[in-house]
Simulated assay, not measured.
Amino acid sequence: MTVTPLFTNQDLDPDRLREAFGVFPSGVVAVAAEVDGVRTGLAASSFTSVSLDPPLVQFSVANSSKTWPVLRRASHLGLSVLADHHGGVCRQLAGPVERRFDDIDVTVSEHGSLFLDDGLARFDCTVYREVEAGDHTIVLLQLHAVEQASDVSLPLVFHRSAFAGVAATG
């Protein structure tokens, strides 16, 4: 039996990896809290559900993030699933820290979780565990409350290094 190599080019440079990873769309969430009286947040394009018992979700954050060390100090975090019209909000959450929540309608819970008022779903959570993984950290979050919007907006996804909506099929 002759075995033909499946991969002939083992070039795993970061640009090539980013391009290959980008063919799979991922959901986008805002991760936010009020920390020491300051609204703090970031956009994460690596969100996924993990477990129903206990209820867990996860996202990944770059180890170079200046925002995550502040956010992780919060007693609770708010996750807002972003809708297809949130592309600008997503870019704003990646911009200057002091302007990330300008002109964005938000609600802060009694625990300090911060939610976008028009998110598709909102999760109140706490850090369950962090796992170092190369140049990122995987953050597992335990859910304490959930609320789902009743509107029919579609989710925002990150695909091929750009934000996009998904097409509804019927």
Rank of each mutant, 00 (worst) to 15 (best):
F7M: 13
L141Y: 02
S60A: 15
T137P: 04
D103R: 12
E130G: 10
L71K: 00
L154Y: 01
V50D: 11
A168Y: 09
R72P: 01
A83I: 06
L52Q: 08
R18T: 15
H111M: 09
T169Y: 03
A44R: 00
V166Q: 04
T169A: 04
L17V: 11
H144I: 09
F59H: 08
A62G: 06
R129G: 07
Q58W: 07
H86W: 02
F163H: 09
T137R: 09
H144V: 08
L42K: 03
D135P: 05
P55S: 13
L116G: 00
P54C: 07
T2S: 09
S75A: 13
E110F: 07
D13Y: 06
A32I: 00
L12D: 13
E147Q: 15
G41A: 05
V131K: 12
V131N: 07
L140W: 03
L154I: 05
D53C: 09
S80L: 05
G37S: 12
V152C: 05
T137N: 07
H159Y: 14
D36S: 12
Q58I: 03
G165F: 11
D15C: 08
G134A: 08
G37E: 12
T4K: 14
A83V: 02
V57S: 11
G112N: 05
S153Q: 14
A133E: 12
L6W: 09
G134C: 11
A149T: 04
Q148W: 07
D105F: 01
T126M: 09
P96W: 07
V70T: 15
T137K: 08
L114D: 00
V38N: 03
A43K: 01
P155M: 08
S65P: 04
S150N: 13
V35F: 10
L116M: 12
A94M: 13
Q142S: 11
A167P: 01
T126K: 14
D117G: 11
D15R: 15
